[in-house]
């Protein structure tokens, strides 16, 4: 009876149901066999966020696919894109993916200083990626290939720029987590956060595969 009355209290206004529901029936949420850990729901929720982010990129890719050949008598991808630079950029992101993986492996072992070192290396590769991209953008704009020049360039800057913005914010997040890990160590909360950033970081690498194939390589082919 006591549990029923507390369940009834859940629906009082101003009272958060999520606080009291676990007291009512914890086995409904946690696998009694121990096959799930509490962080599991966070990881699934973050995965759903990544999937919704994926839809943003799908819309941007679709926009680029539709208007990507409308040059308005301006420069085409063949005139603009510098493939060796893109290859270098791609390798930076790929290296940052594997170094983040190493940070995760050290996290499993509980080696705090090595986690920090690998995270720092990952951040540097990320910065190199963003730096190269900014250099490319600066070069294009300097040549007159601005976002305003043609529909192709608008779509290009939006798609590649959104990806670059994601990587930049990922670096901010990375630095924040390095500070948190430095201050509080590899507590479960920080491990969970590092795993979320791990998914975010690898996800951005997946998006970049689409960008370098669809935008840069296929663009030069036309």
């Amino acid at each position: 009876m006591a549990t029923q009355s507390s369940a009834a209290m859940n629906f009082e206004p101003g009272r958060s149901p999520s606080v009291t529901i676990p007291q009512v029936d914890p086995t409904a949420f946690y696998d009694a066999k121990g096959e799930h850990h509490p962080e599991g729901s966070t990881m699934l929720g973050f995965w759903l966020y990544l999937m919704s982010d994926c839809l943003i990129f799908a819309a941007l890719f679709a926009t680029y696919a539709v208007v990507g050949r409308n040059y308005a008598a301006g420069p085409s991808p063949k005139d603009l894109f510098d493939l060796p630079l893109v290859a270098l950029n791609t390798s930076m992101l790929l290296f940052s993916s594997i170094t983040y993986g190493f940070a995760m492996l050290e996290m499993e072992k509980g080696d705090l200083s090595r986690v920090q070192i690998w995270l720092a290396i990952t951040g540097l590769f990320g910065l190199a990626f963003v730096g190269l991209e900014l250099y490319e953008f600066h070069h294009l704009i300097h040549e007159g290939a601005t976002p305003q020049r043609s529909a192709f360039l608008s779509a290009f800057f939006t798609l590649v720029g959104t990806h670059g913005l994601h990587v930049s914010l990922g670096i901010v997040w990375l630095v924040t987590l390095m500070a948190q890990v430095h201050k509080r160590g590899l507590v479960p909360e920080n491990k969970r956060r590092l795993l979320c950033l791990s998914m975010f970081w690898h996800f951005l690498d997946v998006i970049w595969i689409g960008v370098f194939t669809f935008v840069y390589l296929m663009g030069v082919l036309q």
Partner: peptide
């Protein structure tokens, strides 16, 4: 346990 036995669900570990 933290993530010590997280391998059971194959979540985010490699």
């Amino acid at each position: 346990h933290g993530h010590g036995h997280g391998h059971a669900d194959g979540g985010s570990h490699g």
